[in-house]
């Protein structure tokens, strides 16, 4: 069943359209990748899906969450769905986490808010979640402050926070871009494992085609505010229809090939 759906979503600032006529839908267990370069409007789309656009931006179209249009809804209504139906992880967890609050309490906060758990239950659940995202020594780690963790660990905390209230859709906006490759690989594996376990629908936003292609089943390609391509990952990779998608695939394939000298030994 569709959880999140937009039709004709358009975002403008000072009369200039930044996102134009974007329609997409997400159900539980869907894995959708949204790919685009900086300035393509992919992150704005993500923010719009949670009612988090900066003031001054105007939206039109429809944003249906469980069939209810939330476009232009008051913040009170958005707060009911944020974290509970749709949640998000960002590129840099350090800016998304409260620097002065132990991470356990940050995970527990939404649990108490949305699920009405008491303090000790929520904290117990936070420890469970730290364990589920494979953080070492969860009982001790919940008392750590964000800056005491490594970048990869912080992103694990952000994932635990996002998933703790059992949302049905998770939006991941460049969640591994700030990380080193080896850490990125670990987080991608974890993400794969978590969405399989929880059945959450995933909207994975990235500029990096190989990263998206590894995780998503359906691919959306965005450029200058428009969706230029949409289809199953295999189709888009093998038979890209738009010129832009063709270039993306070609350059990604080439970069991938570069790292495999055993297959193509083209060296000077």
């Amino acid at each position: 069943m569709t959880v999140l759906e937009t039709t004709g979503l358009t975002i403008t600032l000072d009369g200039q359209p930044l996102v134009r006529d974007v329609s997409l839908s997400l159900a539980a267990r869907d894995r959708v990748g949204l790919i685009g370069e900086s300035g393509s409007g992919k992150s704005l789309t993500a923010l719009a899906l949670l009612g988090l656009l900066p003031p001054g931006m105007r939206t039109s179209g429809r944003i249906l969450i469980d069939g209810e249009d939330h476009l232009g809804a008051p913040d009170r209504r958005w707060r009911r769905v944020r974290g509970r139906t749709v949640s998000i992880v960002f590129q840099e967890p350090l800016t998304a986490l409260d620097p002065l609050m132990p991470v356990g309490r940050q995970i527990a906060g939404p649990l108490r808010l949305h699920q009405g758990l008491n303090r000790s239950d929520a904290e117990r659940r936070a420890i469970e979640w730290c364990d589920r995202v494979h953080l070492p020594d969860p009982a001790r780690l919940v008392r750590a402050l964000p800056h005491e963790l490594s970048g990869g660990q912080r992103q694990r905390v952000a994932l635990a926070m996002a998933l703790a209230c059992r949302p049905r859709v998770l939006i991941a906006d460049e969640p591994t871009t700030a990380l080193d490759v080896t850490v990125q690989a670990q987080i991608l594996t974890l993400l794969d494992e978590l969405i399989e376990e929880t059945g959450v629908g995933l909207l994975f936003i990235s500029h990096d085609l190989p990263v998206v292609a590894g995780l998503a089943r359906h691919l959306l390609v965005m450029r200058t505010g428009r969706l230029v391509e949409s289809g199953p990952v295999d189709d888009v990779l093998r038979r890209p229809r738009s010129g832009y998608a063709r270039q993306l695939v070609a350059s990604a394939a080439q970069v991938t090939r570069l790292a495999r000298p055993s297959v193509h030994g083209e060296y000077r």
């Binding site: 900086s38 300035g39 450029r223 200058t224 010129g243 832009y244 270039q247 070609a250 350059s251």
Partner: peptide
């Protein structure tokens, strides 16, 4: 890498300022 790709990709890049 083939030249047509370079030219094709060149058109993708728009001035960002």
């Amino acid at each position: 890498m083939s030249t047509p790709l370079v030219e094709a990709v060149e058109t993708v890049e728009a001035p960002d300022a």
